[in-house]
């Protein structure tokens, strides 16, 4: 672990925003707090994807499988078998990590190129949605209803708006710290080396499979945990929302608009885009459903055409140039 990681952990730039965010439940209306919670959940999802998509540069389109596993498996274990959802969360995360490692195994064993990897993971996403729809244990196509939340923390109940906001904040923070830790560690160095030049990185002895599989497992487990929290928070698991490839695409687009590789891009993009999207949905949902996704689409096109490295790195470099001048 490089020293900059500990600097990051001690930095007031990290803790002051977190402290301010932690106070928000006392100042925001229930509606705005719900938007904040959703934004934080998407921060976690985007940062989890960033480990594979940004740092390792692999176009994984299977994250909906992990989110769906976290949401549906943990919920189903709780409802059907009475397994505590904390434990269910861990089981689902482990299953997701194993699925992720399996995909990495296919990638390494068959030396899939970027495109093939994207397509294989996409096929897994489609398969995942179909498996869910066909499995009664997981609620089939109609989804799962979770029992009422009584605020029993030991049963993974966070008792309403503020509780879930804080839970989502903690998870987002964990995802951010994990991203930073990977970047400051040998694993991050390996993954970036592999992203920039796979053959050269292999030639100098970086173990392709082990690095990619570790990254994939971390990304899958974090996505899965976010899925479990998402499920408990919304009390109802909608498979068309949480297990469909559309979710992955949404995550990928948000992360790319922000800028890949560093955690800051996906973080800020999710914090800006989700609230804007939700407010647009609130304003125009009745008259113009889909307006916010339409605008995402326009935004991603503009970003790819004008600043393919993402908005946040672009702003940072502009600021640097401004300071120098």
């Amino acid at each position: 672990m490089r020293p900059d990681f500990f600097q990051f952990l001690r930095s007031p730039l990290l803790w002051i925003p977190v402290a301010i965010a932690a106070c928000l439940p006392w100042g925001l209306s229930a509606y705005h707090l719900a938007i904040g919670t959703l934004a934080l959940l998407y921060v976690s999802l985007a940062l989890a994807w960033n480990v594979v998509g940004g740092i390792a540069g692999q176009i994984s389109l299977a994250n909906s499988v992990f989110v769906g596993t976290g949401a549906l498996l943990a919920s189903a274990l709780y409802i059907r078998l009475g397994i505590d959802m904390w434990f269910g969360m861990v089981i689902a995360a482990a299953v997701s990590a194993i699925l992720g490692v399996f995909m990495s195994l296919l990638d390494a064993r068959f030396r899939l190129g970027h495109l093939s990897f994207a397509l294989v993971t996409l096929a897994f996403a489609e398969i995942g949605e179909l498996v869910v729809a066909g499995t009664d244990f997981l609620g089939g196509a109609s989804g799962l209803d979770l029992p009422k939340d009584h605020g029993r923390f030991w049963l993974f109940e966070f008792g309403g708006g503020p509780g879930y906001f804080w839970a989502a904040l903690v998870l987002a923070l964990i995802c951010l710290v994990v991203n930073q830790a990977i970047l400051s560690s040998r694993l991050g160095y390996y993954l970036r080396a592999l992203r920039d030049n796979e053959d050269a990185a292999q030639a100098i002895g970086i173990e392709l499979f082990r690095s990619k599989a570790t990254g994939m497992a971390i990304s899958a487990a974090l996505s899965s945990v976010a899925g479990t929290l998402f499920a408990r928070y919304s009390n109802f698991v909608d498979p068309t929302l949480l297990a469909s490839p559309n979710l992955t695409i949404e995550i990928v687009l948000i992360a790319t608009i922000g800028g890949l590789g560093t955690p800051l891009g996906p973080l800020i993009a999710a914090l800006v885009l989700i609230p804007v999207g939700e407010i647009l949905r609130g304003q125009f949902g009745g008259t113009l459903p889909g307006l916010h996704f339409f605008l995402y689409g326009v935004l991603i096109i503009v970003v790819v055409l004008t600043s393919p490295q993402g908005i946040v790195p672009r702003l940072l470099s502009l600021r640097r140039r401004f300071r120098r001048a």
């Binding site: 998509g53 540069g57 176009i59 970027h114 495109l115 994207a118 695409i249 990928v252 687009l253 790319t256 890949l260 113009l288 459903p289 889909g290 307006l291 996704f293 339409f294 995402y296 689409g297 326009v298 935004l299 991603i300 096109i301 790819v304 055409l305 393919p308």
Partner: peptide, 30 residues
């Protein structure tokens, strides 16, 4: 849209067409 990015990374080109997907799907929805 595509010609200007044809030479950049695969990920970027895929993102761009996914952006077009969002525009078309939701444009039709609206």
């Amino acid at each position: 849209l595509l010609r200007p990015v044809a030479r950049s990374q695969l990920l970027m080109v895929i993102q761009l067409t996914l952006g077009v997907t969002f525009v078309l799907q939701n444009g039709i929805l609206m």
